[in-house]
């Protein structure tokens, strides 16, 4: 289940890419789900735990993955209990956030109204208002009414 909290909250990581650079584990990178996210979002291939093949930048390190993919990997693997700012993710990451939230209870922090229109059967618990939205349209109405955003 996906839970969304807008605005500044305790225990949130405002810039997940920096947190990722200092906390990621090699096994996170070679996980098949990570490989798939890197392929889809960054159009790159995971060669090994320490090397990525990018069509734009050549051979790059894990630290040069996009901020969006780094944030997705944290959402998938980090077990510190921290909440990650999904505003570091572009809308092309939205479907992955929904997919991760189908595997586990996931709470994300947002500072903008993310476009989840690409997510089939979108459903989320809106922490700011205590309401569960069952479609992208309901989410939009609810999100736009939240002042903290």
């Amino acid at each position: 289940m996906l839970s969304i909290v807008f605005g500044d909250v305790e225990n949130a990581v405002y810039h997940p890419p920096t947190y990722f650079d200092n906390t990621y584990l090699d096994e996170w990178i070679t996980d098949p789900r990570t490989r798939e996210m890197v392929r889809d979002v960054d159009k790159s291939e995971v060669v090994s735990a320490r090397a990525i093949d990018s069509p734009f930048l050549g051979s790059i390190s894990v630290r040069e993955l996009s901020g969006g993919v780094k944030t997705l990997i944290l959402m998938l693997f980090d077990d510190s209990g921290r909440i990650f700012n999904a505003s570091s993710c572009g809308d092309n990451c939205a479907k992955w956030i929904c997919r991760i939230a189908r595997e586990k209870d996931l709470t994300i922090n947002l500072h903008h109204v993310m476009d989840f229109s690409s997510c089939d059967g979108f459903e989320a618990y809106m922490i700011n208002t205590g309401r569960t939205v069952k479609s992208f349209e309901e989410y939009l109405d609810e999100a736009l009414s939240i002042e903290e955003r």
């Binding site: 890419p17 996009s66 901020g67 969006g68 993919v69 572009g90």
Partner: peptide
């Protein structure tokens, strides 16, 4: 400047 992830903003 905004937009999808992996478009080169941080680069």
């Amino acid at each position: 400047v905004r937009g999808d992830s992996a478009t080169g903003k941080t680069t």
